[in-house]
Design a binder for these strands. Structure first.
Length: 270
DNA sequence: GTCGATGTTAGCAC
DNA sequence: TGTGCTAACATCGA
């Protein structure tokens, strides 16, 4: 689930639960998730505290009182959960940070594509990964400057974290739907007006998703997300949810840039 | 039992 | 050099 709105929701959750408490233990159930040497990580954490939270795109940063920054990336199925009793330990807990008050912050991730790492600073991590500006912070001008020379289809470019950080597969589809741009439209062929709509749609979709705490069923009716297959089917035999919320046309499911892509053939034209 | 999945990245072809 | 496609990662759940 973790695209920008989920990670922003996790950030707020961690800020409310896990700051300014002594870290007493690092529990690593599955070392494969560590992108940093285990001992170095333990040394950096034990006896320290998390003092702040930041987010760039899908990356969550937890600066430590002693300098370095813990970086969490949630892959496809990652999340965080604050708990105390062993009976409440979340399923798929892979790494857990224990605090002096007896609570623990679990990094859960069933598919284990997530990563826990350590960086010298947020800026160093951003530089090293080549992360572009956060999708909520990028300006219309920056976005257009980065894309208007590219001949690739617009959708995979939106997914490229070096262009702008935080947009994942469903958000890219939703943004393009709201902006009425076909996912395969070449970036270089988009008009200045289309870039304006694109930038605005990114803001609207992300803000809406964050406001709903990334709970999809609470999203507005006119969102394409309700047409995705994994949205709840209202009742057997009906497929209204697979039609465009704006014009009623059947939604196309195709592959663009190797990813499942939903779009309205009527509203999103070349 | 089979298939596809919200992310990232290495390897490869052009 | 830039670009873009595919497979692979590990696992779950439909």
């Amino acid at each position: 689930m973790p695209e920008l709105p989920e990670v922003e929701t996790y950030r707020r959750y961690v800020a409310e639960t896990s700051l300014h408490q002594a870290i007493t233990q690092l529990e690593v159930e599955h070392p494969r998730l560590l992108a940093t040497d285990h001992d170095a990580l333990r040394q950096a954490l034990i006896g320290g505290q998390f003092v702040d939270t930041h987010r760039i795109g899908k990356n969550l940063f937890l600066p430590l009182d002693r300098g370095p920054v813990l970086v969490l990336h949630f892959g496809m199925t990652g999340g965080v959960d604050y708990y105390r009793d062993e009976e409440d330990r979340p399923r798929f807990t892979r790494v857990a940070f224990h605090f002096g008050n007896g609570f623990k912050l679990a990094f859960v991730d069933s598919r284990m594509f997530g990563r826990v790492s350590l960086a010298e600073s947020i800026a160093a991590y951003q530089e090293q990964k080549g992360l572009g500006p956060d999708a909520l912070a990028i300006t219309a001008e920056e976005l257009r400057a980065k894309l208007q020379q590219k001949k690739a289809p617009i959708k995979p470019l939106l997914l490229d974290q070096k262009v702008t950080a935080g947009i994942g597969n469903w958000i890219a589809d939703e943004v393009l739907f709201q902006a009425r741009i076909h996912p395969e439209h070449r970036a270089s062929d988009l008009s200045p007006e289309a870039y304006g709509r694109l930038h605005e749609a990114i803001g609207v979709v992300l803000q809406t998703a964050i406001r709903a705490e990334a709970i999809y069923r609470d999203f507005p009716r006119e969102f394409l997300i309700h047409a995705r297959e994994w949205d709840d089917v209202p009742s057997p035999g009906t497929d209204a949810h697979r039609h465009c919320p704006r014009c009623g046309t059947a939604i196309d499911k195709t592959r663009v840039g190797g990813r499942a892509t939903y779009s309205c053939p009527q509203c999103q034209v070349f």
